[in-house]
Amino acid sequence: MARIGTHDGKFHTDEVLACFFLRSLEQYKNAPVIRSRNPEVLETCDIVVDVGGVYDPKKLKFDHHQREFNETMKSLGTLDFDTKLSSAGLVYNHFGREVIASLLKLDSTQSPVIDVLYAKMYENFVHAVDAIDNGIEQFDGPPRYKLSSTLNSRVGNLNPAWNQEDANPETQFDKAMKVVGREFTEQLSYLFHSFLPARQLVLDAIENREKNHISGKIVVFANGSCPWKEHLLEIEAEQKLQDKGLTYAVFGDKGGSWRVQAIPVDANSTFENRAPLPEAWRGFRDEKLSDIVGVPDCVFVHISGFIGGHKTREGAIQMAEKALILLGLWSPRA
């Protein structure tokens, strides 16, 4: 039976996550985790993480504490992240695609789906573990408030307090693996079952944008509840569409009406966007707004201009078209 080696004593999120990754794979699924700093004990293990002073993937040794170690996902040619890796990042770098395929019960690690999930799970989950373990602060200066519950704290709290006896360290380490495993798996499941289908809807909308409006600047989504901002900006960058001038998104809401929203400058922005709806429309509603816009059945335009509403899909597209013309971003004679 294969054996996984890591250090004993206080455990940290990085080696706990690294061991979870390995235990997710067929070749290590029943492997006991041997926790020791004794070189002779570690030599009996088939793979060693976060201890031993050696990084050598050919020998299945994944420590990052040695003075000369400076590997990142970027330096290893994997992803464009410059953060120094912990044992979690090292194991993810070499086994992450297999881990994802195994957890999702997919047949192959070689597919665009795996590539997207591999990159997103590093960005959204593993990257923070690497950064925290290497002492990299998330922001400069003192924090404005305290976060009492994070993945790191949930793992750390499973270690005994300074005045408690470590009666059953292996049981606590197993509990920690279950904590990180559950959170990693839940986030991966969300990406696979919700994030990726949304990405496909956004990709389809971008590809069909000229069918919905001749300008090609209005992106119309078939499913109004689809989260689109992050996907649109990523796909735009991947396909080098920045010069196409994507300006407005049109989508339905749960009440049956439609929205026209200015595309934001980044995925986390709401009010800072590429082209707010015209100032003359802002803060008006219903008939008054319809008279100003020149399109019947308008519903509202937010006072900031980031979003407006119409009773129909076609009307929302008309609002977007009128905005493009008024702002000098498109002409029907162009």
Results as ranks from 00 to 15, higher is better:
residue 170 E to P: 05
residue 183 E to V: 05
residue 189 S to D: 06
residue 139 F to N: 12
residue 174 D to C: 01
residue 160 P to C: 12
residue 119 A to P: 00
residue 247 T to W: 13
residue 237 A to Y: 03
residue 209 R to A: 11
residue 169 P to L: 09
residue 240 K to P: 01
residue 204 D to C: 06
residue 130 D to L: 08
residue 146 K to T: 14
residue 154 R to D: 04
residue 200 Q to C: 00
residue 131 A to V: 15
residue 178 K to Q: 12
residue 157 N to C: 07
residue 236 E to C: 12
residue 203 L to H: 14
residue 240 K to S: 11
residue 147 L to N: 09
residue 126 V to P: 00
residue 204 D to A: 11
residue 233 L to H: 15
residue 190 Y to V: 09
residue 222 A to T: 14
residue 211 K to I: 07
residue 150 T to N: 04
residue 120 K to I: 06
residue 137 E to T: 12
residue 177 M to Q: 14
residue 235 I to G: 07
residue 110 Q to L: 07
residue 212 N to G: 11
residue 111 S to A: 05
residue 180 V to E: 01
residue 227 P to N: 03
residue 120 K to L: 10
residue 209 R to P: 03
residue 210 E to T: 15
residue 195 F to A: 02
residue 119 A to Q: 02
residue 116 V to G: 02
residue 152 N to S: 09
residue 167 A to K: 13
residue 176 A to V: 09
residue 124 N to C: 06
residue 210 E to M: 02
residue 153 S to W: 08
residue 213 H to T: 07
residue 190 Y to E: 13
residue 146 K to M: 10
residue 169 P to V: 12
residue 244 K to P: 06
residue 129 V to N: 01
residue 192 F to C: 03
residue 111 S to G: 02
residue 196 L to Q: 10
residue 182 R to M: 03
residue 138 Q to T: 12
residue 135 G to H: 07
residue 156 G to I: 05
residue 217 K to A: 06
residue 200 Q to Y: 08
residue 170 E to S: 14
residue 187 Q to S: 07
residue 180 V to S: 00
residue 128 A to M: 04
residue 188 L to R: 07
residue 237 A to H: 06
residue 146 K to R: 12
residue 231 H to D: 02
residue 185 T to S: 13
residue 137 E to I: 05
residue 162 W to E: 13
residue 142 P to V: 15
residue 151 L to G: 04
residue 144 R to Q: 06
residue 108 S to P: 02
residue 132 I to M: 02
residue 202 V to D: 09
residue 232 L to I: 06
residue 178 K to I: 13
residue 193 H to P: 03
residue 143 P to C: 03
residue 138 Q to M: 11
residue 160 P to R: 04
residue 118 Y to Q: 05
residue 233 L to Q: 11
residue 117 L to G: 13
residue 235 I to C: 01
residue 138 Q to Y: 08
residue 228 W to F: 14
residue 212 N to I: 10
residue 209 R to S: 07
residue 219 V to S: 01
residue 132 I to R: 05
residue 125 F to I: 00
residue 217 K to S: 10
residue 203 L to V: 03
residue 145 Y to V: 08
residue 206 I to F: 02
residue 132 I to K: 08
residue 175 K to T: 02
residue 149 S to K: 09
residue 208 N to M: 10
